[in-house]
Simulated assay, not measured.
Amino acid sequence: MNIRIFNSADELGEAAAKEASNIMNGKIKENGKVRIVLSTGASQFEFFESFVRQSIDWSKVEMFHLDEYIGLPVAHAASFRKYLQERFVERVGIGKVHFVNGELEPESHIRQLAEEIARADIDLALIGIGENAHIAFNDPPADFETTDPYLIVNLDDNCKLQQVREGWFASLGDVPNQAISMSVQQIMKAEHIISCVPHGVKAGAIRLALEPGVTPVIPASILKQHKNWTLFLDNESSSGIARS
Rank of each mutant, 00 (worst) to 15 (best):
I206C: 06
A142Y: 05
E166T: 10
N154G: 13
I218N: 04
V153H: 01
A120V: 10
L151C: 13
L231Q: 01
F169Q: 02
D174W: 04
A203F: 09
V164F: 04
Y150T: 00
L210Q: 06
A170V: 14
I187C: 14
D234F: 01
Q225Y: 04
A125G: 07
D123A: 10
S183L: 03
Q163S: 09
H226F: 06
D139N: 15
L223I: 09
A205S: 15
Q162D: 08
D123M: 06
H199N: 14
V175E: 00
A179G: 12
N138S: 11
Q186R: 14
L151F: 02
G204H: 13
L126G: 09
D143Q: 10
T215D: 14
P149G: 03
G167S: 06
L124I: 10
V214A: 07
I152Y: 01
D234K: 05
K160Q: 06
A179L: 10
L223K: 09
F144I: 07
C196Y: 02
A142E: 06
Y150C: 01
R165E: 09
Q225H: 07
T215V: 09
S181H: 03
P140D: 13
W168K: 07
F137Y: 12
P212N: 13
V175Q: 01
H134G: 09
P141Q: 14
W168P: 00
L223S: 07
N158Q: 15
V201P: 01
I187E: 04
A203C: 09
T215F: 09
A209C: 11
W229K: 04
P149T: 04
L151N: 11
Q163W: 02
C196H: 01
K189G: 05
I218T: 15
E145Y: 13
A209P: 07
G173I: 05
I129C: 01
G213L: 08
Y150I: 00
R119W: 08
A205Q: 12
V164Q: 02
T230L: 05
V164Y: 02
I194E: 00
H226W: 05
E145A: 15
A125F: 09
G173P: 00
R207I: 06
D143N: 14
W229R: 06
L233I: 00
A179R: 07
K227L: 14
L233A: 02
V217H: 13
Q185R: 15
D157F: 08
K202L: 09
M188D: 03
